[in-house]
Design a protein around this nucleic acid. Sequence first.
DNA 1: CCATGCGGGCCCA
DNA 2: TGGGCCCGCATGG
Length: 416
Amino acid sequence: SFLTWSSPSKLKSDTKQFDPFQEWTDGYVRYIYSEDKNAQRHLSGWAMRNTNNHNCQILKKSCLGVVVCSRGCTLPDGSRLQLRPAICDKARQKQQKKLCPSCNASLELLPCRGHSGYPVTNFWRVDGKAIFFQAKGVHDHPRPESKSETEARRSSVKRRVSSPPFTPKRRLIETQVDNIKTTPAVYRISFIEPNFPQHYPAFQSPEPYYNPHNAVGEAQPTMQKPANPRIYMGRPGYEFQGYLTSPTYPMTSDLCDPRSIMPNSDVSWSLCRVPPVLGSSSSSTPLSAPLTSTCSSFDPQSKSPAGWKELLKSSAPYGDNHHYYSTEYPCRYPGNAPSSPAALQTIITTTTKLPSYQSCPKPSAGLQSYQPCAPPKLPGLPSCSSLLDDPSSSYSTEVKVTEESGRSHQVSVISA
DNA sequence: CCATGCGGGCCCA
DNA sequence: TGGGCCCGCATGG
């Protein structure tokens, strides 16, 4: 159904109607970007790898998770190592053979299982000047360092290694220390908030230099005041009906008209994979709330989302090696969720092979009112101030995405 | 080196 | 079929 999202040309003729690029999307959200370089490059703070969906119209990517120290050691600054998994399979294998720069323990790749037990997936579709983005799943692991940070670190390390004067021994040590020092705060887990560093920018990026990188995220909408985040925070299985039942032309029509979708966006949080304890609470709020209000509710400031995140945070301590796999971490265990993984599966299908995504029928409906479901309020949840607390919200709104300039791709959007 | 895309192909439900 | 995923190939920084 992601496919159906289109006709930005008409609906969003006004550039201002597009969403600001979101580097750290999380949850079931949708955005429509303009000609943003980052969007054109299908950039994401998360380490996303291309996955073949046999649909040239839609570019699909799945999350690789995060690489952490198998011992979960604490870095000198109190944070934890959170490396960005190499996208290239081969490079990733090499990466995993390396040792923790801090304690020399082996590194461990925490796979992402935020989408019904499968990695969170991102879908991209290009339609004219509009770039449609859709994410499915809630990352159940800490944020890795951003791409820009990784690149910065690499170049810096390279610089030092290649730089001359040091005895072999000394250089080795230096390099290691350097790694730590240069480790973007971002990919370190806060000592204080080991669980989800990403929610605590302040901790993540003690060093000003890195802050810019972390600035962009969903949590930031608050600060950025994005026009209106197309977040349809649904949980798995709560995709809009419209998305689910895609018409003949998945990419184009059903989602074309947001309005048409909204009515069906009767997503219920009951489907959310919320810990049993909290799960019940979600059932009460349908996502069908008015688009406007609903959407806004998703704002970082909104309490609902926060509550959800808070939940995750509290339930997923990142202390020992396999904490993420513990039952404490609902996200990783579909089993904990009320519904089965299958039930939670998203409906967006991108596997349909299409001749050329350019040829895909374009959506005709307007997107103006397009509003993904709003996150329902989580009645049972304690106050959800997480968003407010979310460090990300404190990040500078400035998106530091300038480094990427990319080539534009044509992505067909995702259909849910 | 490695990030990215693409697309063939396999497996499974 | 759809979804997930592995693999090789190609391109580009």
